[in-house]
C-alpha cells in the first residue's frame, strides 16, 4: 500500500536515457578517484617538494569540497531537484556549519592563548 502516493513522484527512464546516466556516473567516479589520488599524493610528497603547509591545507579543503559537491549534486541527485528543495536542504546546513566553524575555531585559538598567559 502506498499511502504517501510515492508512485506519483517516481521518475522512470528509457534504455537510452539510462545509457547517458551511466556514462555520467562513471565520469563522476573518475573525477572522485582523480581528486582522491591527487590528495593522497600531495599528502605524501608536500614536504619533499617544500610546499607551504598553509597552501597544502587549503588545497585539501578545497578538493574535499569539490568531491562533496559531486557526490551531493550527482550521486544524490540534488542538482536535478527543484530549486526550492535544494535551498531548503543546503542553506540551513551551510549557514549553521560555517557559523559553528568560525565560532569554535576562534574560541580554540583564544583558549590556547590565555592558557599561555595564565
Amino acid at each position: 500500500m502506498d499511502f504517501d502516493r510515492t508512485a506519483e513522484y517516481v521518475s522512470h527512464h528509457s534504455e537510452e536515457e539510462g545509457k547517458k546516466m551511466r556514462k555520467t556516473i562513471w565520469v563522476i567516479f573518475w573525477v572522485l578517484l582523480g581528486v582522491t589520488t591527487v590528495e593522497v599524493s600531495l599528502g605524501l610528497v608536500w614536504k619533499d617538494l617544500g610546499l607551504m603547509w598553509e597552501f597544502v591545507k587549503w588545497t585539501f579543503i578545497i578538493l574535499t569540497l569539490v568531491k562533496a559537491y559531486y557526490i551531493v549534486a550527482y550521486y544524490m541527485h540534488l542538482k536535478h531537484e527543484y530549486k526550492n528543495f535544494i535551498y531548503m536542504v543546503a542553506l540551513p546546513y551551510i549557514v549553521l556549519a560555517l557559523y559553528l566553524i568560525v565560532m569554535i575555531l576562534t574560541e580554540a585559538v583564544y583558549v590556547k592563548n590565555i592558557e599561555g598567559i595564565m
Binding site: 502516493r5 510515492t6 513522484y9 531537484e81 559553528l100 575555531l105
Partner: peptide, 30 residues
C-alpha cells in the same frame, strides 16, 4: 518540491545527521 514524502524525510534526516558529524569534526578542530 515534486519529491515524495519519504524522500523529503530522508533528506531532513541526513541534514540532521550531517550536523552530528559536523559537531564531532568541529570539536576535533577545536
Amino acid at each position: 518540491f515534486n519529491v515524495s514524502y519519504g524522500k523529503i524525510m530522508m533528506w531532513f534526516f541526513l541534514v540532521s545527521d550531517a550536523f552530528s558529524f559536523s559537531a564531532l569534526l568541529i570539536s576535533y578542530g577545536f
